[in-house]
Design a protein around this nucleic acid. Sequence first.
DNA 1: CGATATCCTGAAACCGGTTTCATGATGGCT
DNA 2: AGCCATCATGAAACCGGTTTCAGGATATCG
Lengths: 336, 336
Amino acid sequence: MNKVTIDDIAKVAGVSKSTVSRVLQGRVAVHPDKKNAVLTATRRLGFKPNIVAQSLASGRSMTIGVLTQNMGSPFYDAIAQGVIAGLSPSSYSPIFADGRWQIPMELSALQSLVGRRVDGLVLIGGSISSQQIQECCNELPIVIVARRFSDSNYRCISMDNVHGGYEATRHLLDCGHRKIAIIRGLSHHADAIERHQGYTRALEEFGIVPDPRLMVESDFSPDSGLSAVRELIKRGEPFTAIFAANDLTAFGARLALDQHGLRVPDDVSIIGFDDQLESAYMTPPLTTYHQPAREMGHHAAKAILKLLQGDEFLSLQVPGHLVVRRSVRDLTTIVH
Amino acid sequence: MNKVTIDDIAKVAGVSKSTVSRVLQGRVAVHPDKKNAVLTATRRLGFKPNIVAQSLASGRSMTIGVLTQNMGSPFYDAIAQGVIAGLSPSSYSPIFADGRWQIPMELSALQSLVGRRVDGLVLIGGSISSQQIQECCNELPIVIVARRFSDSNYRCISMDNVHGGYEATRHLLDCGHRKIAIIRGLSHHADAIERHQGYTRALEEFGIVPDPRLMVESDFSPDSGLSAVRELIKRGEPFTAIFAANDLTAFGARLALDQHGLRVPDDVSIIGFDDQLESAYMTPPLTTYHQPAREMGHHAAKAILKLLQGDEFLSLQVPGHLVVRRSVRDLTTIVH
DNA sequence: CGATATCCTGAAACCGGTTTCATGATGGCT
DNA sequence: AGCCATCATGAAACCGGTTTCAGGATATCG
C-alpha cells in the first residue's frame, strides 16, 4: 500500500507539511526552490494523496452520488452511462446506490450516499417524495433525471412524456390507423401515465373514444408485451396498430404477433418508445419515439458540476423525437 | 447539512466521545444506562455518522472500486449490475470509474480509485497488463471479471470462451451445417480470439478446413454485423449458417439477411453469443450461447466481500450454456 | 532610513471519527 | 478482609490532510 504521507515529503524536502500542502494545491505562491524540493520528493517517494483525508479536511469528498433504480432497463442504464461519461473529464467520481424502485430501499440508499458526504446528487427516476428528499439532503446540490416534481424547486432533466405519447399515437393516426391498441406500463408509473395521456389526447383530437378493450397493462418487460398481445387477441376486439409502453414491450409484442401468424407491419403496425440500440435491428426495424437517455445523463452530470461551481442551472426538458423506421404501415397509401 | 457530531451526542448524553463511539459500534460492552442515553441522544439529534471521518480513522473506506470499460455493451453492463446487486446487502458501496478500453484512461481511472482508498477492486474486462495492475494496487484485494491472466495470481471470474465458441459451432455442425460463416469480434480482443479458436476446433473435429472467405471481422456492434453479412454475400461463397461474435452482431446480421430476402432460419441459420435480454424476442428467437454476465458480477462482489473478511477465494470459471431457440435450422431432419 | 505593506512559512488547530492507554470501580476467590 | 482479574470509561493520541494564525524576511514608500 501507499504509506507515503505529506509528512514524509516535508521531512525529505526540508519544509513544513503546510508548505507541502500548499505546493500540491498550487493555489498559493511558494518559493521556487522549496517548490522544486517538494515536487522532487513527491515524485521520488511516489506520493499519492489520501483522498479520504483530503475530504475530511476540506469538507469536499469529490464524489457525486448517483441513485439509480437498477431495474435493468436499457433506458435507465443509458442515463447512468451518460452520467459516468459526463463526470469523467472532471475530478469528481460517481458513486452508485440502488433503490430498486422500492421506497424503503431508495431511502436507505439515499441516506448511505449522504452519509458518504457526497458533494452532489443525481437522482435517476425513483418514487420517493420531494419532501423525503429534502429531509435528508438539505443544501446538497441535486439534479433529478427522468422525473419531474410539480411542487418543488428541484432541477429536473426530463422529457415530455405526454407529448411523446401524443406524437407516437399521432403518427399512427396520420398513417390512417384508427383501431389503436395501447400496451401501457405499470399503472402507477408516472411515465406510463403520461404517455397514456398523450395517447388519449391524440385519439380525442381525431374524435375517437379510447376503447378500454384496446388497453392492456404491462411492466415494461418484453415478456409482459408478449402476454399483452395474447390478451388483446383473446379479447377479439380488432386493431391495426399497437402503441407499446417502451421498446422492450414492443419486442415482446412483435414476437407474439409473429406467433399468431400476424405480419408486421402488413397486418399490425407497432410503435415503441425509447429507441434503444437494438430497436433499429428488429425485423422490421422498429418505429419508435426516441428518448435521449444518454444525453439526459450527460446533462445531469454537467448540471451538477455547474451547481458545484456556484453557477445556477435551471430545469431542462430535453426534446425527444419520432424515429420512423419500418414497423408502421401507412394505410393512406392505396395499394394497387 | 448534518452538523451533529459525536461530540454533540457526548455532551447531551453526558458521556465521553469514546463511549459514544463504542455504543455506536456495538463491539464493546457499555453500561446499559449510558448506552440508552447515547442512543436516545443519537435519535433526538438525528445523528448521521460521517463516513469520511470513519474511513480516515479506521483505515477502511467501505467502498469497492469498480473499473468498467463502459462500451455500452449489454454484456459488460450486466456484469456491472451484478456487482451492484451483490454488494448491496453489505455496507460497502461501489464506486465506478471508466477505462473506455483505452489503456491510458484505464490506468488513470485505476489510480483515481486507489487514491480514493477503496478497500477492494473489481476490474471488468480491460486491457492493462497484470504488472501495471500490481504496480498501483499492491496488497489491495482484487477480483477480475470477464478476463483471465495466464501469468498471474489474480482471482479471475471468467467464462471459457473457447469452449463457448466450440459449443456454438458444434451445435451448428450437429444440425447438419457445414458451410459455417463466422463474424468474429475485434481482432485483438481476447474474447473474440478465443471464440474463434473454439469455432476452428469444432470445424476441425468434423474434418472441415476453416475457409477464410467465410470469416469477417466486426466490432461487436449490430451495425458491424450488418456490414459483415453484406460483405459475406458479396464474396459469393455460399454458407448455411452464421456464428456471430455476440448477440448484438447477430441482430445486425439478421436484419441484413432480411434485407437480402434470406429467411432465418429457413435459408440461413444464426447463432449468437451472450444471450442478452432482447435475444429471446428476436424474430425468430435467437439461439445463442448464454454468458452468465450478471452472475459473474454477483460472484465478483461476493468474492471481494470474502477477501475482505480474510477468507480465501479462488479463480472461478462460470459455466455458460447453449440456449436453443429458433434461429438455427436442423438440416438433419428430412423435410418431405 | 524608518515605517508599513506584502510575501513566505512553520506551528498549531481542525475535520470527525477510532483506538490505545491508564485508571477507578467491581467482582471473584481464598 | 485482602488481592488480583475484569470491566467500564474518559483522556488523549491518531488517521492525513487543510487552513488559520502569527511572525520573520523582504519589498515598497515617503
